[in-house]
Amino acid sequence: MFKGLQGALSSLGHRVIEGIWRIGAGARLFSYICFYLPEIFKRPRLIVREIFSTGVLSLLIIIVSAFFVGMVLGLQGYNTLQKYGSSESIGVLVALSLVRELGPVVTALLFAGRAGTAITAEIGLMKATEQLSAMEMMAVSPVARVIAPRFWAGVISMPILAALFSMVGVLGGYFVAVPIVGVDSGAFWSQMQASVDFRDDIVNGVMKSLVFGVVCTMIALFEGYDAPPTAEGVSRATTRTVVNSSLAVLGLDFILTALMIGA
């Protein structure tokens, strides 16, 4: 009994220490990335390539999910709002929920699953097959050549994907509200425009997705860079990327929302 408790406590302690250690190591990696910032401007081509694999290849999943999310919001919103005789407000509901919350958050979750795992697996395998070591031995810093371009590509891609998600989602809501349930098109847009504020809603949404971009990409990169160079290690790291990114996104979303509403 006592022994079991002791074991549980000591494993808890180990996990806490491990967690703190990893946060510190992640911060160090981040500082290296910032240190190599000038290198990146010398070779924008590297970032372009990474934007292709993180951003462009995520386009399909983002657009399709956004359209469906928008349509569902439209249907559910209509169902509820028509009871109060205010089905024209459907545009407001769809736009505000997308721009403020669903756009940045769902995009970040999809990004973690689509692009984050790819980054972790790729870097983990590059490490396992000694490609990173080989680069170091060629006097080329893997952080400058491999890690940093992926980081900046992720930070650039995320707000763009989130903005696309919101826009396509609004179109999805429009598609349900106007042609299908028959809300007036003018009322749909004008009510939306009257209630969605550029600075308070749209800019804040973009800022959120920027923060999520930094966090999700950083987690994916760190898990890959830190993965034990074995098949099992890489697969565990990939799982951790999704779990940690999702937790970080949802937790940070709360903090950011509190800050933005408070401000």
Binding site: L125, Q131, A134
Partner: peptide, 13 residues
């Protein structure tokens, strides 16, 4: 000044 050949080549895939 060094060149190194890794065990399985470590080519960039």
């Amino acid at each position: 000044k060094m060149g190194m050949l890794f065990q399985f080549g470590a080519l960039f895939t």
